[in-house]
Design a protein around this nucleic acid. Structure first.
Length: 689
DNA sequence: TCTATTCCGGACCCA
DNA sequence: GTGGGTCCGGAA
């Protein structure tokens, strides 16, 4: 009934062929054999950071980027030669002829390796991610076709002298605008835009560590010139995502850590020049970018060996661009606040009162702000100074938009996480706020407010929420092949699924199922699946543990295959050391064979949960990719993703396109799970597919 | 001994 | 029972 074929995903990555870029097939298979042995390491008890296949010296000889003797560069014990000519060339210093040459170069490049440079001189490759520092520029290594490495005349000494091929170009694009109004600056920006535009238009790899941040920045800076649809055209590769797939529990591997893991020795950057004012302090040399390219290449080797390649190409890589192009949501209250702030006197007051510093990123503090705004509408503005002190940081939120950060590698199960604020954690239900007023003689005021309703779409646009219905239960039904459970989903969804389930389970007509029965059924299902004990279930349901265990037993009796499924999953995990989702996502569970009962049973629950939760994440990502590609390839559609709440996708759709967009959704392969539930703001409808 | 920062567990929200 | 983020207060 349900098919999990992922092969039909329309994606630019579909035809991703390593050999085209010098990942020789011959080499691959040889290396693959060696890696196979390492694969076993996954299941062995981990020293925490070492659950990535360890690499040995010979693996340094990577087939990528055509340097036969480049391993010499990884001889860390020897002194690194100076590569002064390999520091970036600022494109502003180029003459017209050189610019033309560069563009021609880009047209023929086989790959690009790139990183952002921050204000403080650090790059994306530095371990301390400079979150405070803003972006200063972009360094790009333009790799050109060089087949001559096959030629024996190209000696290693040549290679050492020119770490990068001489036809490779290392360029620097300044992005910070000091004096935007100057004509010269404008011309530079335009040329930088052209370089980036052409780079992304080419269907060759753009290798970047933390590619999402890179793309987002590009969109931010050149938002007027480069649309998110054009960014979607690029073929970005991110070794960090690869590393996360191989070892999902290591959620923040730095570039240094990765090179250490893959190439054994750490690559010290002590020789980096710290001068200021010159481009040398860009802390990026072609050497470093080549190392990034090699890290990238090595990751893919490991991905292929572990069977993660397809998952990587069909889901994770396209997702980078989707997350990069996600639109910040406009918040009604912040917008109002902005409007209010525009009033001159109020702005002054705001500055005066501002003393207490707090972030808007927390929901409770957000509520405070909301409350202030509610008061604003009721009270005269002159009384504002008597109210809560206003945060300075508020000024940053003037536009009234909330843009949270979406993290692709933040979970072990393959789900996406969000922070600042955590949009996925915003309360669904109305919140009660009791606020003391600092105005003499006024009583306390209670306000209820629905935090989600505060997000509003642009004028002329509508929020469209599309979500999976009971996705985890469906996956469970499918994976366990439990006939009774499958029957639930074969019938058209006329009544509530848990009501039907309760009637089926208890053998009573669905009309007689009470709310309490339904609740029980729901709880029991999830408890049994995820291995909750009778005590926990009893606590949830407000019954005695004895009654709870009766429930569990009768459920197991009725749906035998579910129990078989969990047992099978655990068994498989014991022998292999890891569990696999429907799309082949892996989670190593070292404790599955532990002596300690507590640790072992926890690993068992995690194993079962991963298969279900991870598979659900896979399907949701598939939907995201499919919807995204169909919007991108459509000449008319402009729908943009606002948020992803695990099994729900929130889009902002042009009013005139609602029909067309809805029809697009219907086509998806995952449609067995997918349905539109609601469209806020204007429309409300329920569409069962 | 006091103050300031950092860390960690627990509580809450979400799926 | 699993997977997240954020807040808070107490310990270091």
């Amino acid at each position: 009934m349900l098919s999990y074929q992922a092969t039909k995903i329309l994606s630019y990555y579909q035809d991703l062929d390593l050999s085209k870029w010098g990942y020789g097939k011959k080499n691959l298979s040889v290396k693959a054999k060696k890696l196979k042995d390492d694969e076993k390491n996954v299941a062995t008890p981990l020293k925490r950071k070492q659950d990535v296949p360890t690499c040995h010296l010979e693996k340094k000889r990577l087939p990528l980027m055509n340097y036969t003797s480049h391993e010499r560069r990884y001889n860390w014990t020897s002194r690194r030669p100076e590569f002064s000519e390999n520091y970036p060339c600022d494109i502003r210093s180029l003459g017209n002829e050189e610019k033309r040459e560069l563009l021609a170069n880009i047209e023929q490049a086989v790959a690009f390796v790139t990183t952002m440079i921050f204000q403080d001189g650090s790059s994306q490759l530095n371990s301390e991610q400079a979150l405070t520092s803003s972006v200063k520029g972009i360094v790009i290594l333009v790799k050109n076709q060089t087949d001559r490495l096959c030629s024996p005349s190209y000696s290693s000494s040549d290679r050492i002298r020119n770490a990068a091929d001489e036809r490779d170009k290392l360029i620097y694009l300044k992005t910070e605008c000091s004096s935007l109004w100057e004509q010269e600056e404008q011309a530079h920006k335009k040329f930088a835009w052209r370089v980036l535009f052409q780079m992304m238009r080419r269907k060759v790899p753009v290798i970047c560590f933390n590619a999402k941040d890179f793309l987002r920045t590009v969109l931010q800076i050149y938002g007027n010139e480069i649309s998110w649809k054009q960014v979607a055209d690029s073929v970005v590769l991110d070794p960090r995502i690869a590393a996360w797939l191989i070892n999902p529990s290591d959620t923040v591997p730095s570039f240094e850590c990765l090179t250490e893991k893959y190439f054994e020795k750490s690559f010290s950057m002590e020789t980096e020049n710290t001068d200021t004012g010159t481009l040398r302090n860009a802390s990026v040399s072609s050497l470093r970018l080549l190392l990034l390219a090699d890290t990238d290449a090595y990751s893919y080797l490991a991905l292929q060996v572990q069977g993660l390649w397809k998952l990587f190409c069909t889901l994770e890589l396209p997702l980078i661009k989707i997350l990069a192009g996600m639109k910040p949501a406009q918040n009604k209250t912040l917008h109002l606040f902005h409007t209010a702030l525009r009033l001159k006197e109020l702005e002054q007051e705001a500055h005066q009162i501002a003393g207490e510093r707090f972030l808007l990123t927390s929901s409770s503090q957000l509520r405070e702000v909301i409350f202030i705004l509610l008061l604003l509408t009721k009270l005269s503005l002159s009384k504002l100074q008597d109210l809560h002190p206003l945060p300075k940081i508020m000024l940053e939120y003037r536009q009234g938009f909330i843009s949270s950060t979406w993290n692709q590698t933040g979970t072990v199960t393959g789900r996406i996480s969000s922070k600042h604020p955590n949009i996925q954690g915003i309360s669904k239900h109305p919140v009660r706020i009791v606020k003391k007023q600092y105005i003499k003689g006024k009583e306390e005021e209670i306000v209820t407010i629905s935090p989600r309703a505060l997000f509003v779409s642009k004028k002329g646009y509508t929020f469209l929420a599309a979500d999976f219905s009971h996705i985890e239960l469906r996956i469970l039904a499918d994976l366990s092949s439990e006939p009774e459970l499958l029957k639930l989903f074969q019938e058209p969804e006329t009544t509530d699924i848990f009501t039907t389930l309760a009637s089926q389970w208890k053998g009573i007509p669905s009309e007689e199922v009470k709310q309490a029965d339904r609740e029980q059924a729901k709880r029991v299902v999830y408890s049994v699946v995820y291995g909750a004990g009778k005590e926990r279930l009893a606590e949830c349901l407000g019954i005695t543990p004895l009654q709870a265990s009766h429930f569990i037993e009768s459920f197991m009796q009725k749906y035998k295959k579910v129990n078989e499924f969990t047992k099978k999953t655990i068994e498989q995990c014991r022998t292999k050391g890891y569990v696999v989702s429907i799309m082949g996502r892996k989670r190593p569970l070292a404790n599955i064979n532990a002596q300690d009962y507590k640790l072992r049973t926890q690993a068992e629950r995690q194993a079962v949960n991963f298969v279900v939760q991870g598979s659900a994440a896979d399907l949701c990502k598939m939907a995201m990719v499919e919807i995204f590609t169909s919007v991108v390839t459509s000449p008319t559609l402009t729908a943009r993703l606002i948020a992803q709440i695990h099994d729900e996708l929130l889009f902002e759709v042009e009013d005139s396109q609602i029909q067309e967009f809805s029809e697009t959704l219907v086509k998806f392969e995952s449609h067995d799970y997918f349905k539109l539930t609601s469209i806020r703001n204007i429309l409300h409808y329920n569409l069962s597919i």
